[in-house]
Design a binder for these strands. Structure first.
Lengths: 155, 155
DNA sequence: CCTCTTTTGACCTTCTTTGACTATAATTAT
DNA sequence: ATAATTATAGTCAAAGAAGGTCAAAAGAGG
C-alpha cells in the first residue's frame, strides 16, 4: 500500500476483525515501534480514519499501563445506527465528514458502492454551488433526507 | 508521432492494456520525469483525453503516497439516453420533472428502486430549502452530477 | 494572420510525517 | 502522605510530499 498511515489503518482494522470485530486495545508506542514511525503518527491515523463519522469510538489512558482502545460502533440495529448518523450530521456537515459517513454506511452494508457514489455526488462542493455556511446546512439536509429514505426502504 | 501529449496518451492507454485493460495507477511526477515534461502536462493530457465522455474515470490523492488512477469504463448502451436526460435537465428543473426523469431511469433499468428513492430524496423541495429559481438550478446541478456518476461508475 | 492546441511555470491545496512540548497516571523514594 | 520519577498518551505546528489550477507563451494548421 501507499503510505504508512494507510498501512497502519489496515493493520488496526485487521486487529479489530481478528478479535471478534468489535474492539481493539493497543499501546501507542508499541505500534509506533512495529512500524518504525513516531508515536504521534498513531494519533494522526486515528484522527483521520477512526472518527465517529467513520463509525468508531476511541478511548485512551495515559501513564503507566496506558492504552488506546478503538471500538467499532454497534451496527446490528440499522435503525439505531442510522439515527446515530443523523445525530452526527445535525444542522451542518463538511464534505469531508459527509464522505466519512457515506464510507461508513458502505462498509456497514447499508448502501452499495453505486449508491455511495450517487450520494457523494449529490453533496459535493461543486454540485451544491453555495457559499458557506449554507452549503454545509444544505448538505446536512440532503443527507438526513436520504438516510430517512434508506430507513424506510429497509422495511 | 506528433506531440508530447499524444505520446503520453498512448503510453497511458498502453499501460491500461498491459494491466488487464481496466485501470492504471501512476505517480504524476514519475511520468513527467520519464517524458521530460512538467508535471502539469499530465493534468492537461488527462483533462483532454481521459474525460468521462471518453469513457474514463480519474481519481487522485495528494500528499505522501499520492497517485493518479485512471479507470476505463465500459461505455454501456445507456450512454446516449443519459446524455439526453442531461440535456433535458439543462440549467434548471422542477421537482415534478425531476421525478419523471428518475422514474424514467428506473423504468429503463439504469437505477434500482432504492437508488431512485435516494435521488428523489436529494432533490425534494423540502430538502433543498431554497427559493425559486435557485432551487431549480440546484436541483439540476445535483441531477446532472448524479447522472455522471451513474454513467461512469457502471460495473 | 487568426484560431486552436500544447507547453510551461508560478502558485495553491491537500495529505502525511516528524518532533518538540504538554498532560496525565502510576510507581518509587523521602 | 508527599514529592519526585517514570511511563504513557495528546497537541500542535513546521516540514515534506504529492497532485491541482490557471494563464501566459509557444506552436500548428488553415
Amino acid at each position: 500500500m501507499r503510505n504508512m498511515s494507510d498501512i497502519i489503518e489496515q493493520y488496526l482494522k485487521q486487529l479489530i476483525q481478528d478479535s471478534g470485530g468489535e474492539v481493539v486495545e493497543i499501546k501507542r508506542a508499541h505500534i509506533a515501534e512495529k512500524f518504525d514511525c513516531v508515536p504521534s503518527q498513531l494519533n494522526y491515523v486515528i484522527k483521520t480514519r477512526f472518527t465517529n463519522e467513520h463509525g468508531y469510538t476511541v478511548e485512551s489512558k495515559r501513564g503507566g499501563g496506558g492504552y488506546i482502545r478503538i471500538t467499532k460502533v454497534e451496527t446490528h440495529s440499522k435503525t439505531e445506527y442510522l439515527a446515530h448518523l443523523k445525530k452526527l450530521i445535525g444542522d451542518g456537515v463538511s464534505e469531508q465528514n459527509a464522505n466519512r459517513l457515506v464510507q461508513s454506511m458502505f462498509e456497514n452494508e447499508v448502501i452499495t458502492i453505486k449508491e455511495a457514489k450517487i450520494i457523494n455526488a449529490a453533496v459535493e462542493r461543486e454540485t451544491l454551488m453555495l457559499e458557506l455556511p449554507f452549503r454545509d446546512t444544505l448538505r446536512a439536509s440532503i443527507l438526513r433526507r436520504i438516510i430517512d429514505v434508506i430507513l424506510y426502504s429497509e422495511e
